[in-house]
């Protein structure tokens, strides 16, 4: 079995599992949690393209998510755009923004890159809060219309579930494809040695900006989907904390692993639900997880599983 055949099998199995999950879930509450897992997976996978593949951190990804949501929200509520058109417009707008700021931002490395993306995120967050006439300010924006497709209106938990997960699965599939391609390898090469990648003919600067743009564009799509399924958005969902949460998802799942990002997103979405009893404990746990995982399990959960499987195999052979 070749690697690409294995990829297809794994993806098909995962996709089927996603499709039948709602039939097994009892009640809207869980269904809604799974909608959020879908959105967060999409975001984590998008960030992983940048962080896990190319090794470039962004502490401002919540801003792209938020920009997608707000552009969609503003275009539909104020300018009577069709939601699908608004979604396309939001994704394109954010793509262009990311491409333009990508050049100066991605010239920076390591800590400086982290600070610059963080700064960008905070500026955007402040704009969401301050441009009250457009965004409704801190108290948010409501009445964003649902998406619809012919007779189907995506306004129930069930329809939203399938809507979101179709996009999420598509994002995952394309990312898996990308991972095992010329571009995916070039990105991982940048991660490991930027000089060597350049010397081998990889246009590092351009490729970083391209993947940053793609990553931002997917995040904006997720934001737009979020706005149209929730119909209400407020700045608090798009702040620094959420950017950090996204990074945590990617790290927990495993840098560069697409299914790891799903795992990370699922864990971080479920955790607060389970910890509801210990309200507010989640943030402490995120902090601990980030430290412990980085020190002891730099490959994330998926990396951990792989190491475990390898160890068991060796044991068997011995």
């Amino acid at each position: 079995m070749t690697k690409s055949q294995r990829d297809i099998i794994i993806f098909t199995a995962f996709g089927l599992a996603v499709m039948i999950t709602p039939l097994l879930l009892r009640g809207n509450y869980l269904l809604n949690v799974f909608v959020f897992i879908g959105i967060n997976t999409m975001l984590a996978v998008a960030l992983n393209l940048l962080l896990g593949f190319a090794g470039q951190i962004s502490l401002g990804h919540a801003a792209f998510f938020g920009l997608g949501a707000y552009i969609s929200g503003i275009l539909t509520t104020r300018y009577a755009f069709d939601p699908w058109m608004a979604m396309v417009a939001a994704a394109l707008c954010v793509g262009v923004i990311a491409f333009i700021i990508g050049f100066p931002i991605l010239k920076l490395k390591g800590h400086y890159l982290a600070m610059a993306t963080l700064g960008f995120g905070i500026i955007v967050y402040i704009i969401f809060n301050e441009t009250v006439d457009w965004t409704g300010g801190p108290s948010g924006m409501s009445g964003i219309p649902n998406l619809s497709l012919g007779p189907i209106i995506f306004d129930s938990y069930m329809t939203n579930y399938y809507l979101i997960w179709v996009f999420t699965l598509l994002t995952m599939l394309l990312s898996v494809n990308l991972a095992n391609s010329r571009i995916g390898r070039a990105l991982r090469a940048i991660h490991d040695s930027e000089v060597a990648a350049r010397v081998m003919g990889v246009n590092v600067r351009l490729l970083k900006v391209q993947i940053f743009t793609v990553s931002a564009l997917i995040s904006a799509l997720a934001g737009s989907l979020y706005a149209h399924t929730m119909t209400f958005i407020a700045p608090a969902s798009f702040g620094f904390n959420f950017s950090v949460e996204l990074v945590t998802m990617v790290i927990i799942g495993g840098l560069g692993s697409i299914y790891g990002s799903f795992l990370g997103a699922a864990i971080l979405t479920l955790l607060p639900e389970f910890l509801r009893v210990f309200h507010d404990f989640d943030i402490v746990i995120y902090g601990l997880l980030l430290i412990v995982m980085t020190i002891f399990m730099p490959g994330g959960l998926i990396g951990g599983f792989e190491a475990l499987a390898a160890a068991i195999n060796r044991r068997k052979e011995a």
């Binding site: 494809n177 391609s181 010329r182 571009i183 390898r185 070039a186 081998m200 003919g201």
Partner: peptide, 15 residues
């Protein structure tokens, strides 16, 4: 990766 310059597929066609 050494063959990077000998190939040309972009992000879109790879994805």
């Amino acid at each position: 990766v050494g063959l990077h310059t000998k190939s040309k597929s972009g992000i879109f066609s790879c994805a």
